[in-house]
Each structure stands twice: as C-alpha cells, then as structure tokens.
C-alpha cells in the first residue's frame, strides 16, 4: 500500500503542475476542473457519505456567486468576505432544506427532487428579480489592484491556484468528516436509517450538517467562479448544469470515497474539453457522443467508481497476501 500511496501523491503533484507548463488554454481548463472537483467533492460529502442526494446544487453555487458579486458591486466588500458570507448563507439554506426533508420524511430520491425544486424556484426568482439584474445578470467591475486580496489576477495561473486552494479545503473537509465519528454517523444513516436511530444517531442532525457543509463549500466554488468570469448570470449559476456535471464526475470517480469525485473530475473534465477542441468544429455533437460513450465505458468497467473499484481490487490483493485488506475501521 505504501507504494500505491507514493504513486498517488506523485500523480497529484504532476496533475497540479502540468497546467503551468501547458499554457494559458490548459490553465483555464485546469481552473474549471479544480472548481468542479471541489464542488463534486462537496456534493459527495452529502450524497456519498450520508446518502442525502441533491439535484439542486445550483442553488448553493448561485447563492455563493450572487452574494459575493452583489456585496462587491453594491458595497465594495472584498470578494473573500463575500465568499464567506455566501458560504454562510448557502450553509444555512442547506441546513434548512435538510431539516425540511427530515421533518416531513422526504427521503431518498424524493429529497433529491425537493432540492431540485428549490434550485428551480431560485433560478426563476433571480431571473425575474430586477435588483439582482434579472436575466441580464450582473457584470462585476474588476476589483483593484490585482492580487490575492482582491481575488483578481493578470494570469490564469493565479485563478488556478485559488481554485486549487478551494479544492484543498473541500478535500480537507471531506477527509476530516470521513475519518471522524461524524463520518460513522453519516454512513450509518446512509446504510440504514432505522438501525442508525436505534444506535442513537439522529438522522435530522446528519442530514442538516451534511447539507450545510455541502452547501457552504459549493457556494465558495460559486464565488470563485463568479470572480473569474467577472459576470454572474442566473442560468450559469442557479441552473442544473453544474449539478449534473458534478454528479457525473463523482459517479465515475467513485461515490462515497474521499478521492473519487476528484479523480472523476480530473479525468472527465479535461477529456471533455479536449474532445470538444478536436471534434467540436467538424461534426456538431460528435464530441458529446464520444464523451457519453467514455462515461458509459467507465461506468461499465468500474461499477462502483474508479476509486471504489481500484481500491477494492487493491484491498482484495492485500487480503490474499495475508495482510489486512481495505479500510481498517476505527
């Protein structure tokens, strides 16, 4: 296992450094990949760890982007403070939805549809509410002077580093929850709510905390993306696109694992961009066809996700060798 960890660490460092060498275009791709990876990981904390599925992460992404954009545009408040405020607001929204779901016993897929409903209502509201720019959105005047404090950079490398920081935060939260007693509570509720309750685990607290964590992290990603584009608009942020993408990334990479969503995003997102660059101009839609086939192929080859599948195989091999296989609990 030591060897595998060594290679994994090497791969992570290479993946972080490669975009710097590959130039502007790939730095932009890497920035988006890091934002998506963080959001996918945040989605996985609720859905993968605790079984609290959300189809409405656009709600959180949008709250984050709009809160920081409005605070900066209207009051000149630093994007970083706006990011924190957006995260707090989205976290509260997540906890409220989690509470509603438990209170009215809306579980599983019905809960996912409930989150989608909230996101769609928010999308309609923002699209028609004039003080938030309605469907025109809000253009953000670039904060001055460029630098880390103003979250503005002359090169794409700066944005990529901020996105990497965001991803590191998401991974730290996911890892901490997974390893802590809280992670056992999450998994207990995911696996069997009745048994979890009998063991004194409160599904309400699990759902609320999971939705708060995923909401806050997703909102931070939204803020960063908003200040990268310097433009926020209802459909890009509140729309279902982000959610669909991150669910796909997480599923392919391995739902319920700490690193699955990141691995899934790191493979699929750049692949999708590359396919678009190669096929996009020639035969319309061909890149999407190939991309779809790639996703289906991944799902067939690794039904439990790439990380889940590979992890299981490594564990089985270690088990046969006489050592302790898999995750040793506790």
């Amino acid at each position: 296992m030591k060897k595998a960890e060594f290679w994994a660490a090497g791969l992570v460092v290479a993946a972080c450094l490669a975009p710097f060498a590959a130039g502007r275009y790939w730095l932009d791709v890497a920035f988006m990949a890091a934002v998506y990876a963080g959001v996918a990981s945040a989605w996985n904390v609720a859905a993968g760890f605790s079984g609290t599925f959300s189809f409405g992460h656009g709600l959180f992404f949008g709250i984050g982007a709009y809160t920081s954009a409005m605070l900066f545009s209207a009051l000149g408040i630093s994007p970083w403070i706006g990011l924190a405020a957006g995260a707090a607001l989205a976290g509260a929204a997540g906890a409220a939805i989690g509470w509603l779901g438990t209170r009215y016993r809306v579980g599983g897929l019905s809960f996912a549809v409930l989150t989608l409903a909230f996101a769609e209502v928010a999308l309609l509201f923002v699209s028609t509410f004039d003080p938030l720019g309605a469907s025109r959105g809000i253009s953000i005047a670039p904060p001055q002077p460029p630098g880390l404090l103003s979250m503005q950079f002359e090169s794409a490398a700066g944005f990529f580093l901020v996105a990497l920081g965001f991803l590191a935060l998401c991974q730290a939260v996911a890892w901490a929850i997974d390893a802590a007693p809280l992670g056992y509570r999450y998994r207990a509720v995911r696996e069997n709510e009745t048994a979890a309750q009998a063991m004194g685990v409160s599904p309400a607290l699990v759902r609320m905390s999971a939705m708060a964590a995923t909401g806050a992290l997703t909102a931070a990603g939204g803020s960063i993306y908003g200040f990268y584009l310097l433009f926020v608009e209802p459909r890009t942020f509140f729309g279902p696109d982000v959610t669909i993408k991150v669910i796909l990334f997480a599923l392919v990479g391995g739902i319920g694992t700490v690193w699955g969503p990141v691995v899934g995003t790191a493979l699929l997102y750049p692949a999708g961009e590359w396919l678009r660059a190669v096929f996009g101009g020639r035969v319309p839609g061909l890149d999407i066809l190939v991309y779809g086939s790639l996703v289906i192929g991944c799902c067939l080859a690794f039904p439990t996700g790439i990380v889940g599948g590979v992890g299981r195989r490594l564990a089985a091999r270690a088990g046969r060798g006489g050592g302790a296989g898999g995750r040793t609990a506790g």
């Binding site: 056992y184 207990a188 696996e191 069997n192 979890a196 685990v201 995750r327 040793t328 609990a329």
Partner: peptide, 17 residues
Amino acid sequence: HVFPDLTVAENLIVGGL
C-alpha cells in the same frame, strides 16, 4: 438491521459512538 456496506468492524464502531 445491520449497515450492509460497512464492514463488521465499522458496524461495531457505530455502536460505540
């Protein structure tokens, strides 16, 4: 009512929370 995808050890840890 066990937690089916968790290992036996993980099931027991949940009991010890």
